[in-house]
Design a protein around this nucleic acid. Structure first.
Lengths: 193, 193
DNA sequence: CTCAAGTCTGTACGACCGTACACACTCGTC
DNA sequence: GACGAGTGTGTACGGTCGTACAGACTTGAG
């Protein structure tokens, strides 16, 4: 408008492709052996692109994890939004814990990596905190704050065990545990939100 | 006995000091930026010692995490062994979730790092699996298998949230949730162990 | 003491990494 | 077509890393 074009990328969407490639590399190699070169190769972009779009490795990882967190939060919320009753919400929670849809092996690995890395990177730390808060907010659509907190802990902890156990989760046990917590709901104190 | 001495180290305990130093470095810097040199400096031993005692970085990390797992398992078991009744066992579980004794910031960070690294290292993967099994076995001293599994998930997941939340855990809520699960115990199926 | 056998270490090397930056390319404007 | 502002890239450099290894050191036996 003022004479010459501005800020018009030659290859739109490139940044996102790099972030997706980064998540792929992280899930396969772990943050500890993720490098610019591996990501560039995976995204099929030149090495220089990474320093062009991102301000160093820490920035790249932070944005990749932010993207992961966003994707997961959306899936999470959608799953709970689709529940029309408390009973359906309970089933949704069970699904989040047991179902392969929510926690693929890739996703679980990435979440582990994010939690670990968050302890050493301020930006990823707030991303993680935000993701946990959003989870709780989604649960709060159907449950009291106390129940939400308890279920959230369960949703975090149980797939974690599943990730390392050789046997699949016992769906009936999960269902009954969720129900026990929800049933105890009215008695669960909600000291602070 | 057969002529000359054998396998008598000049500096016994050195290996363990290196492993402790490694855990310090991991908790401070994360596996992703843990190096031989940082560990050597922290342990105040020459760089060459690390290659002398350990067969590469992966081996060093694996042994460090094995040491961590062992320490934690022992504390865990001791806490539950000291409970004389189901009520005391419940209190012990609450303590494990809320108490600062079990999950110091350093320990939580290390556990996160172990879980993340386990997905990329076979030896650490079995260490992690063993640690989870030992946790469940300790719980089984007081609870049915089903309840043990549910509580174990809670013990894993709740401190995880605590680690990133700004507010401390609501002890009353934890107590009541644990009680709800234990109370539901007889009804909790134990499909497979 | 002397002497091996075994324990340890200081140094150096090759590999790989992150990053900077000079240059090539693209495309709206004229 | 020519221009040039802004977009994107190939390469090369300094730095750090893991690791190998020649040799110094320790120690019990003779």
């Amino acid at each position: 408008m003022s004479g010459t074009r501005r800020e018009i990328p030659n290859d739109p969407g490139r940044k996102e492709r790099i972030l997706d490639a980064a998540l792929d590399v992280i899930s396969e190699c772990g943050v500890h052996s993720t490098t610019h070169r591996k990501i560039a190769a995976r995204a099929d972009v030149p090495l220089g692109s990474l320093t062009y779009y991102f301000d160093g490795m820490a920035d790249l990882l932070a944005q990749a994890f932010a993207r992961l967190s966003d994707t997961m939060s959306r899936l999470y919320r959608q799953t709970l939004l689709s529940a029309g009753s408390t009973a359906e919400a309970e089933a949704a929670v069970v699904e989040l814990i047991c179902g392969p849809a929510y926690a693929t092996e890739r996703d679980m690995t990435l979440i582990f990596e994010m939690y670990a890395y968050a302890n050493h990177n301020a930006a990823v730390s707030v991303t993680t905190r935000t993701w946990l808060e959003r989870s709780r907010d989604s649960l709060a659509l159907h449950f009291t704050p106390g129940v939400s907190r308890a279920l959230d802990a369960l949703i975090e902890g149980w797939p974690m065990h599943r990730a390392f156990a050789d046997a699949p989760l016992d769906r009936r046990l999960v269902t009954e545990t969720v129900h026990a917590i929800v049933t105890a709901g009215p008695r669960l104190s909600t000291d602070r939100a």
